[in-house]
Design a protein around this nucleic acid. Structure first.
Lengths: 343, 343
DNA sequence: TGACTCGATGTTAGCGCTAACATTATGTTG
DNA sequence: CAACATAATGTTAGCGCTAACATCGAGTCA
């Protein structure tokens, strides 16, 4: 005999035998208890408990061709920006039968493509991916995926399927206009990583300055290194060394901004009087810092919540009101850009 | 006829037909190409590409009773401490056939138990869980899981299976001894969340002070709220209001520590001269801050790396040198605890 | 040349579960 | 009370893949 032995764990058949019912009744008890009479249900539940039975999700997925997996691909696990959104996704998904499968693309498009391929192997119930800058092949796979797809963190008129986020370009523009309004004149930019979203922020920022006649490309300093507070301090130092007349900077994210502040403090430069600083995302630390730091607030938790909502609606066959949801942003003006009037 | 239709995606049988081979040969091409002749392999690969075939991982898992899933359960997605470890786990796992399945227990033991149950439903190849404070039922499930289990972030003489981390108690004690050595006298503690690991840090810290005769429980302030910089500033304010003679604090993590620093700065209190501050974990921001903040450095990335290493070894049948790996910690003394000598 | 090894490929029977239909017991109606 | 709903449970046949064994042809060796 060449029967293959299972891993040893009890199966639904073991439960059925113990409870003296058929396997399908056990299956029903698990998935839709209302369909089973109380007497049987209790017997079955007792058997499940006695055997310590745990349903085999792969077998279930195969038989029902429903995996209940939501694939989520983000470019970073350490960036707090995604942490909030992920938390929201997990919070929303946990009480449902859905399960999250998380992938980290490390800001590499090819890696994202690889992950999409792997995730499709699980026949996911839905996919969530960050942004709209997929490779051609990745985009094609997403378009052919027979499940809802939500792109998050951005808005774009041409989504694969659905999209929820905000405009990085407009956020950057608002930052630029704010610094001009606050009376700053020689306004710079420091940016690390410079992924496509950071790039759009920078472009919006430049446009904001340009309309006020304050755009000076020489004051823009970018690097492909990943962002950190240390790097924020460093770039701030470099930029000031190059252009001592600099009087304000927009940092491409809050880590860079707080780092820039620390850099100024270590160098004995007063913020906001000598230099104004504005960040992006408005992490919790921005309000706490001393001086508190101006930033562009984005509702990252809400993005995650909305994405899962859209998925749920789509899985229930609802047509969404809108395929693209713009959650906007809000400028939080704080001490770091409020310098005393100078004349 | 009542044949069930698949989801429409091509199956291994479609590929086999197109390449005019049997399904098993396709399967071999995918899993172990060396076993298939070049001629057939090329034909099969062409068919795969032409059909855009993606193997169905659930079917594979069912047939082989190998899921290649590593379940990882952490208590928080927003806490940077876990972000580094997660990044390491993903980095290590990605080039292998293993896949990470991540769960968020939200610092709730019952939630952790629920996740363990769900994860076991996937017949994981291995499990990684944070810490050693599982519920009784959860611990029993882990002990009965027929896969390697690694508990991370802590060390304990009695692991479920394997363990890698460091001693929070000793870390706390080192913090206490450092503050005493630096000449601080009325030394307090502020702690948020107070999960079991934070609690052990506090106990070690108290012990460190006690041996120097500097333990004053009245200077210990804890809350169950989750930690944040704002909360760090707040608790610092409350503690100073209650005991204006306070001259140093150990914060149960770096967020709280930086928050406490900001709180002091907003209140015009000099750090380190009037108040010394020490944190725990040594996130990147600690060195960048102004003044730079003393902290207990832990190698969180290495914890994740080691955990996956241990798993890989166990899956390959190796006996590990040691079941419990203590990666230790290192006190990083910085400006925030270096006050000018006073006499 | 027969006995044997070995590599490449195929056949068959599940893995554990559920969809779809089938059956049986129980009530309900004119 | 025949005719027919309806609820509760069962039977059967896969879902897509792979383990285990089977086969086949080519090479090896005494």
């Amino acid at each position: 005999m060449r029967k293959r032995k299972g891993a040893g764990r009890p199966t639904i058949a073991d439960v059925a035998k113990k409870a003296e019912v058929s396997t399908i009744t056990v299956s029903r008890t698990l998935r839709d208890p209302a369909k089973v009479s109380t007497a049987l249900r209790e017997r079955i539940e007792a058997a499940i408990a006695a055997l310590d039975y745990v349903p085999h999700s792969h077998a279930s997925a195969l038989a029902s061709s429903r995996s209940n997996i939501v694939g989520v691909i983000v470019p970073s696990l350490t960036n707090n920006v995604f942490a909030d959104t992920l938390r929201a996704i997990y919070d929303e998904v946990d009480p449902s039968p859905l399960q999250v499968q998380l992938g980290n693309s490390r800001y590499v498009a090819a890696e994202e493509e690889r992950l999409i391929r792997i995730f499709l192997g699980q026949r996911p119930s839905a996919l969530i991916v960050a942004g709209g800058d997929q490779t051609k092949a990745a985009r094609a796979m997403l378009e052919n995926a027979d499940c809802p797809v939500v792109q998050i963190m951005e808005v774009d008129p041409d989504p694969v399927d659905m999209m929820v986020g905000f405009s990085h370009y407009e956020g950057g523009r608002a930052a630029g206009m704010h610094l001009v309004q606050q009376g700053y004149r020689r306004i710079g930019f420091i940016g690390a990583r410079m992924d496509p979203r950071s790039r759009r922020r920078m472009e919006g920022f430049a446009e904001g300055l340009r309309t006020a006649g304050r755009h000076d490309p020489d004051l823009f300093m970018i690097t492909t290194q990943s962002s950190s507070m240390t790097l924020g301090a460093e770039l701030m130092g470099q930029l000031r060394a190059r252009r001592p007349d600099l009087d304000a900077v927009f940092c491409n994210n809050d880590d860079m901004a707080l780092g820039a502040l620390f850099g100024c403090q270590h160098a004995g430069i007063s913020v906001p009087d000598e230099i104004g600083i504005i960040g992006f995302n408005d992490l919790e630390m921005m309000a706490a810092a001393c001086p508190s730091l101006t930033s562009i607030r984005t509702d990252r938790y809400e993005i995650g919540r909305t994405a899962v909502d859209m998925i749920r609606a789509a899985l229930e066959g609802e047509r969404p009101d809108q395929k693209v949801v713009d959650l906007g942003f809000e400028l939080q003006a704080r001490q770091s850009t409020a310098r005393k009037a100078r004349r």
